[in-house]
Simulated scan of single mutants.
Amino acid sequence: MLKKRLTGNTMRNDSRLRKFMLLAASLGMIGIAWGGDTGIRKMGEENDIQIAITGSASTRYAAYWTVIDHTGESYKFEEAGEVPASFSYEGKAIDGTVTVMSDPGRLEVEIRKSGNRSRSSTQGKGSRIKISVQ
């Protein structure tokens, strides 16, 4: 019966490959954890709009969004609630206004689209964030 023997060089290359793969996976996870974009996109993702509203605990907000689709038609949405909150829309652009409804209160709004990110924050009842992403 013949057996294939692994030479020391083959085993060393296999070990190097495993170490490289582990390093690459670790760096990718670190990038994602720090809010990085992996660059991996699905079809249609260029029109995905992700919104995250965060801030101090129990802060209430009111949000008004205008989403423009790929044909140029616009759609209006209203959202209200307490932080944290997140929303997803599909379109080529979005304009919005987010208002702090409680005192004290601090809001942070982040919009992501096609690998781009826009962030703004405000504090105090009645204060507003106006934000747009194309």
Score class of each variant (00 low, 15 high):
residue 32 I to W: 05
residue 112 R to A: 09
residue 108 E to H: 03
residue 60 R to A: 14
residue 16 R to E: 14
residue 82 E to A: 13
residue 103 D to L: 03
residue 113 K to L: 02
residue 22 L to C: 01
residue 113 K to M: 09
residue 27 L to M: 09
residue 73 E to Q: 12
residue 51 I to A: 05
residue 112 R to E: 11
residue 14 D to G: 07
residue 90 E to K: 14
residue 83 V to L: 06
residue 54 T to N: 13
residue 130 K to V: 14
residue 77 F to A: 06
residue 105 G to D: 08
residue 31 G to I: 01
residue 110 E to Y: 00
residue 116 N to R: 08
residue 73 E to C: 03
residue 57 A to M: 06
residue 17 L to S: 00
residue 43 M to C: 01
residue 34 W to C: 14
residue 106 R to D: 10
residue 46 E to Q: 11
residue 41 R to E: 10
residue 66 T to L: 09
residue 96 G to W: 11
residue 27 L to V: 09
residue 84 P to Q: 03
residue 121 S to P: 03
residue 125 K to Y: 02
residue 34 W to A: 15
residue 20 F to C: 00
residue 9 N to F: 12
residue 32 I to Q: 07
residue 64 Y to T: 08
residue 129 I to A: 04
residue 29 M to E: 13
residue 67 V to N: 02
residue 17 L to A: 07
residue 82 E to S: 12
residue 65 W to D: 00
residue 33 A to S: 14
residue 21 M to Q: 10
residue 81 G to S: 08
residue 106 R to C: 06
residue 70 H to L: 12
residue 117 R to S: 11
residue 105 G to N: 03
residue 23 L to N: 14
residue 40 I to Q: 11
residue 19 K to P: 00
residue 49 I to L: 12
residue 58 S to L: 15
residue 122 T to D: 09
residue 43 M to G: 01
residue 5 R to A: 12
residue 13 N to K: 12
residue 76 K to R: 09
residue 130 K to W: 13
residue 123 Q to A: 11
residue 85 A to D: 13
residue 27 L to I: 08
residue 106 R to P: 04
residue 126 G to T: 05
residue 17 L to H: 04
residue 98 V to D: 02
residue 74 S to C: 05
residue 13 N to T: 11
residue 127 S to C: 02
residue 80 A to P: 03
residue 30 I to F: 02
residue 102 S to Q: 03
residue 60 R to Q: 12
residue 3 K to V: 14
residue 89 Y to L: 11
residue 5 R to E: 15
residue 34 W to S: 15
residue 15 S to H: 02
residue 76 K to I: 15
residue 11 M to D: 03
residue 45 E to A: 15
residue 3 K to M: 12
residue 121 S to Q: 12
residue 114 S to E: 10
residue 121 S to D: 13
residue 16 R to S: 13
residue 42 K to H: 00
residue 93 A to T: 05
residue 131 I to L: 14
residue 71 T to L: 13
